[in-house]
Design a protein around this nucleic acid. Structure first.
Length: 653
RNA sequence: GCGCCUGUAGCUCAGCUGGAUAGAGCUACGGACUUCUAAUCCGUAGGCCGGGGGUUCGAAUCCCUCCAGGCGCGCCA
């Protein structure tokens, strides 16, 4: 609010596009500063000090909003002093009035944003790596929603992949009682799941054991081929079993992410993409647009490929950089299907899914699913897909295939859609050596971290982690916690932990680190919010009524009051920025900044003084009103921030 | 071999488009609760920002190079 005004004024005076603002090394110099004159010196061929002098002269005639003084320091820095009381007089009432609309753009965006996240293979329990994906995607969606974009969140379910085939084969043939061909009764198979164990947990171990066994058991390999074909052909009873298994595991996943306040609009099943003939239409389109080529010679003979650089000689032989979409045996590759799916997201296909309701989610909204026996979207009066922007949240290892998808769109002539195909790439979650050792993974002393692997069953299961954090939070509390408070703190702690790292940073998961409840954590945010609520509650209990009025603002703000006001005013621009760069870590950074400014204000409202008077005990009615209003303003903005981060707004802990 | 990413305090990490004396948290040590919530706050200690070269008035940030680590380059999904 202040910065924008200053930047605007400088842009006008100097005629530049961007004006970077900084904080001076010493506060006495000013509240903001700019080195813009230094960088302009060369262009204008004049000493920076001279330019700065002129700027200051011009500014003095007409200061930007809330600026009361502009000075300069050699070799040409511009410094600005803010009239904080004046600013507080506008900022605080605005927050108090607008509440959850504070800082929110008024205009409704027309562009529909489609966010896909989670997309975990439905054959085992989720682990903490999957959770990073879900939390990132969910937060991105919340940001876009807040910015006024129509937002659709979808979770893609790959129910036809080998991972599901593997676990189905394991169910049928790894342990007795074995499945007998021709038998329709699968009850003995289902009965393998112990009563006291969740299905996804059971499958976690089953899958790992199967992968291990598969390497040396050729009859199991044959069985797997057989199951694959049975599922592909939709044969009874194996195919329905596979579907049922996937559904139940998806339900378990939804339960897991539900713990962290994560919800979707739509479940998108791979099997429905195939069944609805998306690929056939895509193939026609690719051919028509001339993006596809049938190879008649070379290593890719007989395949339909998208040209991507042709044949290349490398140290290990001749390789093709071209991307195969249809194999020489006529089958479609994963990338091929992915292109079809991406086209659907943009509404570029004529074909569509059929839909039905999966059920109600804990946020009270319906979760839709694609369904072979469902209704058309027309009938449901709900159009899915047809997005203007598609954000796929997938870890960085998929960067190349994702690039292929968008490049293919480009080659098909969908330039705009290719541009709006955004791969939100993030680094993976690995295990620290200590964590790996605790989990009993094989010794790998020479490495810094150990990758999680569903195949080998090494990883921290998401639900286990959630339970551990809950337990830790209860342990650390100095009083008994209610169950819902413990859950809320765990949610905040976990979401914060998974969001605070930059996208490029691998999370080396370590139990001590991840289970921290002090300092730079989600618990800190909740505590600050609850503390603000408590103060306001106490004030109410003591019948301290306070009504905002300009007269409450002191002639000078203390350092901590001023810092809090400054952070509060930054809220909107931070969210706008995270919407642009999709870096959710900047949102957690802001949240921590906000919480600690408040805590500092709370602990030290009068810095330098020996006595700090609790707000509700203040005798000076104006000061009391001012500080309690600041508390309320903080409560509102912190609440908005927590909402964006998908964290509960605890009123007491 | 080619491509992408990372290297900042003992540890885990920030550092937005290049700006003045590089910041948090954890750990260690010393303080502050009869009070609005101490899961907090204040203080002390801790740094050739991987190495070297360059561009610039100015570089953790941009370019080149080297070193170290991670990932990707399938008629897998």
């Amino acid at each position: 609010m202040i910065r924008e005004g200053v930047a605007e004024a400088l842009k006008n005076i100097l005629g530049v596009e961007e004006v970077p603002l900084n904080i001076p090394p010493q506060r006495e110099m000013g509240d903001f500063s700019s080195a813009v004159c230094l960088s302009l010196a060369k262009v204008k061929r004049r000493p920076p000090m001279e330019i700065a002098k002129e700027v200051v002269e011009q500014l003095k005639a007409n200061f930007p909003p809330y600026i009361q003084e502009a000075t300069l320091t050699p070799p040409g820095y511009l410094n600005f002093k803010v009239d904080w009381p004046k600013f507080a007089k506008d900022l605080i009432p605005e927050i108090l009035e607008k509440r959850d609309l504070f800082g929110r753009p008024i205009q409704v965006e027309k562009e529909k944003v489609f966010v896909e996240h989670t997309s975990v293979n439905p054959n085992k329990a989720m682990h903490i790596g999957h959770l990073r994906n879900s939390v990132l995607g969910d937060t991105v969606a919340r940001v876009f929603q807040w910015l006024g974009f129509p937002t659709e969140v979808c979770n893609y379910i790959d129910d036809t992949g080998v991972q599901v085939v593997d676990v189905v084969t394991a169910f049928l043939y790894l342990d007795p009682p074995f499945f007998h061909e021709g038998s329709a009764d699968l009850r003995p198979i289902w009965a393998k799941v112990p009563e006291n164990q969740p299905l996804d947990y059971f499958c976690w171990d089953l899958y790992a054991r199967f992968e291990d066994e598969l390497e040396r058991n050729s009859s199991l390999q044959e069985k797997r081929e057989e199951v694959l074909h049975q599922i592909e052909r939709g044969e009874h009873p194996v195919a329905p079993f596979a579907k049922e298994l996937s559904k139940r595991i998806v339900q378990a996943h939804l339960g897991t992410v539900g713990e962290l306040n994560i919800h979707y609009v739509l479940l998108n099943w791979e099997s429905d993409i195939i069944r609805q003939g998306f690929w056939q239409e895509t193939l026609e389109l690719l051919k028509k647009r001339g993006a596809l080529r049938l190879e008649t010679e070379g290593p890719n003979e007989g395949c339909w490929v998208v040209p991507f650089g042709g044949i290349v000689e490398t140290s290990d032989g001749v390789k093709s950089l071209d991307k195969i979409l249809v194999r020489s045996n006529g089958s479609v590759t994963y990338t091929g299907k992915d292109i079809a799916y991406q086209l659907w997201k943009f509404g570029l296909l004529k074909k569509d899914f059929l839909y039905s309701s999966w059920g109600l989610q804990s946020d009270g909204r319906v979760l839709w699913t694609t369904d072979r026996d469902g209704e058309t979207s027309d009938l449901l009066h709900h159009q899915f897909g047809h997005a203007n922007r598609v954000i796929n949240v997938i870890d960085v290892r998929q960067s190349y295939p994702q690039k292929v998808v968008s490049e293919c769109l480009r080659q098909m002539g969908f330039e705009k859609e290719a541009e709006q195909s955004i791969h939100l790439a993030y680094e993976v979650v690995n295990l620290s050596l200590q964590a790996a050792r605790i989990l009993g993974a094989e010794e790998t002393e020479e490495k810094r971290s150990v990758a999680m692997s569903g195949r080998s069953g090494t990883g921290v299961k998401a639900m286990d982690f959630i339970e551990m954090v809950k337990k830790k939070v209860v342990e650390k509390a100095d009083h008994p916690l209610e169950e819902n408070v413990a859950s809320a703190l765990a949610t905040a702690a976990i979401r914060y932990y998974l969001l605070k790292f930059t996208l490029e940073s691998q999370i080396i998961f370590d139990f001590d680190e991840a289970l921290k409840t002090t300092g730079d954590t989600g618990v800190y945010l909740e505590y600050a919010h609850a503390r603000a609520c408590s103060i306001l509650r106490k004030a109410e209990e003591r019948e301290i009524v306070f009504h905002w009025g300009k007269e409450a603002v002191p002639a000078r703000l203390t350092e901590t009051e001023r810092d809090l006001a400054e952070v509060l005013s930054r809220f909107n621009s931070v969210v706008v920025r995270t919407g642009k760069n999709l870096r959710m870590s900047q949102l957690t950074e802001y949240a921590f900044d906000l919480a600690s400014s408040f805590t500092n204000f709370y602990e030290n409202p009068d810095p330098g003084s020996d006595v700090q008077t609790p707000f509700i005990h203040l005798q000076d009615e104006n000061l009391r009103t001012f500080r309690l209003s600041l508390v309320r303003a903080f409560q509102i903005v912190m609440g908005n921030t927590l909402g964006l981060l998908g964290m509960p707004k605890l009123e007491r802990i």
